[in-house]
């Protein structure tokens, strides 16, 4: 009764069993640029690693505090409008935290400069400052992605997928990965823009970071509309592209204008 055809058929369907492929894909979409940034910029300098960890840790604490307060006010009805004040307050808290970070950074810079003077080493210069700001921002972005987006992605390593009823165009996991990626980029680069703005007293740069944060946050609310996820995710991704472009433009102009940096370039990239 038993025939051998079954055996060959079974082997041909083995390909289906690689259920982790999708999960790995989503994780790389969310974290790929972060991995690249870590291995090309951060890993070479222990000080940047330390900054990154401090940043992730601090952002996490701020998030936990916000979450703890929010728990008491969380509505049971899922009405979109109820969430707007909550989102507003959360973003405000984080932007206040960013301001606190700037002052922390100033202190750190001051201490580092004093150490440098005592060791007869040159003071921190623009590229160092840029990299520290980048590490701070990167920590902010990573804190979001690792602890929220990645947790949401764990079920994608199973055989099944998941679609939110209002969104048939893309899976919940793709939505989470792309949104996670966008916020990683937005947080990383807006920190650079904000620190730069604070350092130079540039008002428009100072309000860019909170502005973009608000914009991206409210763009995700579009996801709640029937079929709105394509627009919501595209809008969030656009915010990320704009943020990185603005950051590029500012730094590119600065690099062209600063006559003192060229002599110290080799030191910053040892």
């Amino acid at each position: 009764m038993l025939d051998t055809k079954w055996e060959t058929f079974e082997r041909s369907s083995q390909r289906d069993e690689m259920t982790f492929v999708g999960g790995l894909g989503y994780t790389l979409i969310a974290l790929g640029p972060a991995i690249a940034l870590f291995f090309t910029v951060i890993i070479g300098k222990p000080f940047l690693i330390l900054t990154l960890i401090v940043s992730i840790f601090s952002w996490l604490i701020s998030l936990v505090l916000i979450a703890g307060v929010w728990r008491a006010f969380l509505p049971s009805e899922s009405n979109v409008w109820v969430y707007i004040p909550l989102l507003l307050s959360a973003v405000c808290c984080q932007e206040a935290a960013r301001r606190a970070f700037w002052h922390l950074y100033l202190k750190v810079e001051d201490i580092l400069n004093k150490i440098a003077v005592r060791l007869s080493k040159p003071r921190l210069h623009t590229v160092d400052k840029l990299e520290i700001a980048l590490a701070f921002g990167f920590g902010h972005g990573l804190a979001h992605v690792i602890f929220f987006c990645l947790a949401l992605l764990t079920p994608s390593f199973g055989p099944g997928t998941f679609y939110v009823p209002g969104c048939t165009q893309m899976s919940f996991f793709l939505m989470a990965a792309l949104t996670g990626l966008s916020f990683l980029i937005i947080h990383t680069f807006s920190m650079v823009i904000a620190f730069d703005g604070h350092a130079d007293g540039n008002k428009s740069q100072q309000i860019f970071a909170p502005g973009m944060h608000f914009l991206a946050t409210f763009a995700t609310l579009v996801n709640l509309a029937e079929g709105g996820c394509v627009y919501g995710v595209s809008a969030t991704l656009s915010c990320a592209v704009i943020t990185s472009a603005v950051c590029w433009k500012i730094q590119w102009d600065k690099a062209g204008a600063d006559p003192f940096t060229s002599s110290n370039l080799n030191r910053t990239h040892h």
Binding site: R71, Y83, A143, V164, T179, N223, L224
Partner: peptide, 26 residues
């Protein structure tokens, strides 16, 4: 802490909350 409301609409909200403002609900 929410008990009522459908699970799916809560999920959408969770996504918004978790990613936008990084609340520990994820």
């Amino acid at each position: 802490s929410g008990t009522s409301g459908s699970a799916l609409s809560r999920l959408i909200v969770l996504l918004v909350l978790a990613i936008c403002s990084g609340v520990c609900f994820g």
